[in-house]
């Protein structure tokens, strides 16, 4: 570990400790907002784990989230909550493996289309199974976990996502993804199993998203397909992550924090205009902020540095 990495780790740990204490000092509206923020930070970072290096826009977030939620709903009478979060992760990974194996071998556009309807598809299947096979529409998740507990669980998960992301970056898988991102043909010709690497990464990302869904299950109390598989979530994640920038794992952070506040304000005050504003936000990201806020900042810094080095050489 280098010195700067150590420093980053220390700062991050201190920030997490401070945030973990937060639920004791605030409650109500701000705590709910904090949970929402943590929720989307976890989702967007897990999303970026896969979609950042592969440039494949995944719209499967809501499907994985719902799978995690349902894992808890099904098992809450039998197993303790923390264990169910892990079960949700495993279910998410397995689901990602199935979807990835079917779609990641062919062109990227097909993957996007497939994930686009995945939440709706899973919702239909779950609704069908519940009504026709099990005979009830929803499931109860009654726990004594309050918003503060959910917040701490989410913080722990965010830390885990960053840690895993950092480890992948240092491992062969991360290096393979960089090679694939540069030239898939070269990657293939030097022994990289391109499809398999993508599927593994998709599984990691899907597992984390499902775990977020599992953690959030107690908030809903009554789980039914319509609320667990909410396609809007998939789009919100894409737009927040892209707004922040997906070149760095921490890029989405920059997008989530302001966007959650704005989205909260809009859905409270102009609920009918929500889709219009999401649409405009998508267009703004594509046309104005191609690499997100962090990308734009890095580019500006790079330009200044280059300018500085040019003038430096001029003087020498």
């Amino acid at each position: 570990m280098t010195r700067s990495e150590g420093l980053t780790l220390f700062t991050a740990a201190a920030a997490f400790a401070a945030l973990a204490a937060l639920p004791f000092v605030t409650e109500g509206f701000y705590l709910t907002l904090a949970v929402n923020m943590a929720l989307y930070i976890a989702l967007c970072t897990a999303w970026t784990l896969f979609s950042g290096p592969t440039h494949l826009v995944s719209l499967a977030t809501a499907a994985f989230f719902g799978i995690g939620t349902y894992s808890v709903a099904i098992g809450i009478e039998i197993l303790p909550f923390p264990l169910l979060i892990l079960c949700g992760g495993v279910a998410g990974a397995l689901f990602a493996a199935l979807v990835g194996a079917a779609t990641l071998r062919v062109s990227g556009a097909y993957f996007v289309i497939f994930t686009l309807g995945l939440a709706e598809l899973t919702r239909q299947v779950v609704a069908y199974l519940q009504t026709k096979v099990f005979g009830s529409m929803g499931l109860f998740v009654l726990t004594d976990h309050g918003e503060g507990d959910l917040f701490r669980y989410l913080l722990g998960l965010i830390a885990a996502i960053f840690l895993v992301g950092w480890l992948i970056g240092r491992a062969r898988l991360g290096f393979a993804m960089r090679v694939i991102g540069n030239d898939e043909v070269v990657a293939r010709h030097f022994g990289i199993e391109v499809a398999r690497s993508k599927v593994i990464l998709f599984m990691v990302s899907g597992a984390f998203i499902a775990m977020v869904g599992a953690i959030m299950a107690p908030r809903y109390a009554y789980i039914e397909p319509q609320s667990a598989f909410n396609p809007t979530m998939s789009f919100l994640v894409v737009i927040m992550a892209l707004l922040g920038g997906t070149r760095r794992l921490w890029g989405p952070l920059v997008g989530v924090v302001p966007f959650t506040i704005v989205a909260d304000f809009i859905s409270a005050n102009f609920p009918d205009h929500f889709n219009v504003i999401i649409g405009l936000a998508f267009l703004a990201v594509v046309y104005l902020l191609k690499d997100g806020v962090t990308g734009a900042i890095e580019q500006a810094l790079g330009r200044r540095r280059r300018a500085a080095s040019v003038t430096g050489e001029g003087r020498a």
Binding site: V57, G108, A109, V276, G279, L280, F282
Partner: peptide
């Protein structure tokens, strides 16, 4: 492809919302 997908998503939401 990525740009087009994102831009037309924006249009999808915009028109649907409208």
């Amino acid at each position: 492809e990525v740009d087009a997908i994102l831009a037309t998503f924006g249009l999808l939401f915009l028109f649907e919302g409208a």
